[in-house]
Amino acid sequence: MPTPLTPLDQLPIRILSSADLTACADLSEDRGWPREEHKWNLLLTAGTGYGIDDPDGKGLIAASVVTSYGPGLSAIGMVLVAERYARRGVGRRLMHHVVTEAGDTPLTLHATPNGQPLYEQLGFVHTGRAEMLKGHFTATEPVPEIAIRAATAEDLQAVLRLDAEIFGLDRTHMITRLPAFADHLRVAEEDGEITGFAAAWPNMDTHVVGPLIARDTATAQALVAALAAATDRPLRTDIDVRHEALLTWLKANGLASIAFNAVMVRSLPDLPGDWGRRFAPLTVAAG
């Protein structure tokens, strides 16, 4: 057990589990983030969490979660350091460990403006940007007339095939969790073929729309509208800024911009898959 005199750059890093859920939520709250237990539980069970314990026994002082998509990519998210240890090198130590553990596996993350300089020093490069939107969907602007319905168990294999094609890697371990994780899961269908899917999952007082995978902008719009019709909560989502038409439509329908995050990668030139049909991640923490 480390003592209070243990140098911060030598504090042990351990693997987190679902038993650390409350400690992770406490850490989020410490930094002024929502507790987000529902999201933390998904990430800790589907991914690998790393944490540093307070040498004084006061919970976690740093945490991060890595979601693996095989040797082709891992996503880093929920990088947090307790306020009392901020700007003392703890976050750098944790991130250096995570990068080292990844070895040759390419990495991606969504960076806030505050975190981006550290990630650049660790070899991450800026490859895109995502805009976070939030608000009650008003349906002021027309919704494309595209067939949308609730997903069923029989849709799973088709959804997995479409997701692998567009995401560029197999994320079966995440997509198969959507029926339990999300409150609403919808698919777009034409002539018996699934052309898109989207989920709305609960996050504090909102429903987060993600993933949002669709053949085109009109299909993405129809999926969002169907999810909005299923909830009284505000929607929140993170849209690739290259999807300008979808962003304009969402803002005309009541959602407002609240933040931008840089999409960064390490050890590869860009994200795999087809960004033109990938509108929003499941969560920025998992890609």
Rank of each mutant, 00 (worst) to 15 (best):
P7L: 10
C24R: 07
L118Q: 07
A180F: 01
P7E: 11
L250C: 03
V66P: 02
T176D: 10
F167N: 04
A86I: 02
E29C: 12
W40N: 02
L235P: 01
V209R: 09
L42H: 04
A228D: 04
G49R: 00
E101V: 15
D26E: 15
H184M: 00
D270C: 06
R266Q: 11
W40Y: 08
R129V: 15
A164T: 06
A218H: 08
A198G: 14
P202G: 13
V187A: 02
D183H: 09
R278P: 04
T3L: 14
R84H: 11
A256T: 08
R92C: 07
P34S: 15
P142G: 13
A164Y: 04
G287R: 12
L255K: 01
G57F: 09
D270G: 08
H97V: 14
G168P: 08
A252Y: 08
T138H: 03
T6R: 13
I258P: 00
L73D: 09
P272G: 11
D238W: 03
V65K: 02
L235S: 07
V224S: 06
L268F: 01
A147P: 05
D191L: 00
H38D: 01
E244D: 14
P4F: 12
A286S: 15
A256W: 05
S18N: 09
H96I: 09
P179N: 01
A259Q: 09
P71W: 02
F197L: 06
A75D: 07
P106I: 13
D54W: 06
T176A: 11
R88I: 11
I61H: 01
V66A: 10
T112N: 10
I52Q: 08
T237W: 00
T48N: 10
M204A: 15
P2A: 15
L73E: 10
A130R: 00
A225I: 04
I148C: 13
Y85M: 14
I239C: 07
A200W: 00
A252V: 05
V79N: 07
V66D: 02
E190W: 05
D270E: 09
L60C: 13
L250D: 03
L118W: 04
G47I: 08
W40R: 01
D274G: 00
E189W: 00
D163S: 05
A262Y: 04
P202Q: 12
E101S: 15
W249Y: 09
I52D: 01
R129H: 13
A198W: 08
H136M: 12
G254P: 03
A130D: 02
G32S: 06
R35Q: 08
L44V: 12
K134T: 15
A19D: 15
A230W: 05
I13A: 14
P269H: 06
G77T: 08
A46F: 03
